[in-house]
Design a protein around this nucleic acid. Sequence first.
RNA 1: GGUCCCUUCGUCUAGUGGUUAGGACGCCAGGUUUUCAUCCUGGAAACAGGAGUUCGAUUCUCCUAGGGACUGCCA
Length: 510
Amino acid sequence: MSNQPSVRVRFAPSPTGPLHMGGVRTALFNYLFARKNGGTFILRIEDTDQTRYVKGAEDYIIESLKWCGLEFDEGPVQGGNYGPYRQSERKAQYREYADLLMEKGHAYIAFDTAEELDQARKEAEADGKTFSYDEHSRMSMKNSLSMPKEEVDKLLLENAPHVIRFKMPEQAEVVEDEDMIRGRVSFRTSDLDDKVLFKADGMPTYHLANVVDDHLMEVTHVIRGEEWLPSMPLHVLLYRAFGWDKPIFAHLPLILKPQGKGKLSKRDGDKLGFPVFPLKWTDPETQEVAAGYREDGYFPEAFINMLALLGWNPGTEQELFTKDELVNAFSFDRVNKSGARFDPEKAKWFNHQYLIQKTDEELAGLFGPVLVEKGVVPPPVDHLAKIVALVKERVSFVHELWEQSSFFFVAPDAYDAKVVKKRWKGEIPAFMDKLAVFFKNDNGLWSAAVLKEEVSKLIEENEMNFGGVMNALRLALVGGSFGPDLFTIVEMLGQDEVVTRINKAVSELG
RNA sequence: GGUCCCUUCGUCUAGUGGUUAGGACGCCAGGUUUUCAUCCUGGAAACAGGAGUUCGAUUCUCCUAGGGACUGCCA
């Protein structure tokens, strides 16, 4: 019999805005670890900061993860045996735990106002120092440790605003913990300060809420971003102060900007033209719109695949993974310690890979709505699939299919000037006229192979240059020098359309 | 400033004392393609620096440098 508790992990975002792709990756690694170990994946909304609450953010988070295919086992939507799953709805219990800590002598009440603390910080800064609310300063601050009990009671009776702070142990020691990614990490308690656990507004801070909830929800592994590493010792100390078993921690490396310094931010996306968020987001205050991977045409599987390889690798040369393959291959042993610079180009490459893996019929189905948007009535799926097959290798997104194949649906309304200059000259216009007549009178089999043979012969008889004619014909049919095999285009366009387009080019280009 | 974390091609990374330091994206060249793209082949491109340990360090230790995170009654 194994007495290993089954794995329970949580993704705990704060609904202060759209979910960043770094957040999606954190959720993904939690998900992969849970699924790999037959564990439970929990969503917990960390909305303890009322001032930063953003309307719609929670729905956005849930929809984003759903789009990514990361299903939760427990959360605010589906419930579970450890609810509620929103910290605001768990509010009642936190004070009780803060009080428990005070009873045990691990926490105390502090009356210093935010302004006073600001002042203290400014003064220290002017001195070239940093203010720290710790064992050296706490006796000169306003709190239940420094003030007589009667005065504290009096203030409490008057409902004076106060917070509850953690009391860092005075006995200096080294707090060590084994991180799943980083190995042994250690801190000296003498470097740590008395963090606020419970705020004057009656809500806990992240530190308290997170420890209490993870304990109550029986979370076994805390997998979060590296930005939390510095508060790990506080959390370890909190578990110890409560007398609880602590979970195992894993601090993920950050996702960095494609260029320049620092972690990836919304601004980088705007500047370099790629999404930073999974879904499009409209700020409810400013109406400002931020691009999303979904709306930009990325496949969720490609997005997830790309994200998984940012900081993790399988140790093999495989780069394309289905979600199940990721679950199977995933391990924290193979998660890197250092931050990973995000490469938008590689993200596109991943999407291209997923796109060409799809069947022509699937892509035709996805392409249909794009055509409708362009004002084109989509042809039957089998015909559309044929067109898609000709051009899919050259695009990364479904919407790019249009740029590569629009001439199959509408005649070119303009001719690429550079190509005109280079290809439409000399004997060409006269010969194109002949070619139109030839096509018009053609009674043979209208197929690429046959047409190619016939046209080749015609070119030879007229002592024209094959390449030159082909390029001019291409110009007439598609408007530029791009597209798949020319005779395939001729075949698919059909006799009448080909003749019409050549005549139109001759009359417009002279 | 303080604390902690990190450091292999431009980027993502493989590598756990002895390798021509491998792959992928991107880039360049050649070939194929009547065009463009695809595709194929090839190429340029990295162990931050310095001390140790060792017969031998990309791999282990230390120092330096660089980068990053945190340093809020935000998470």
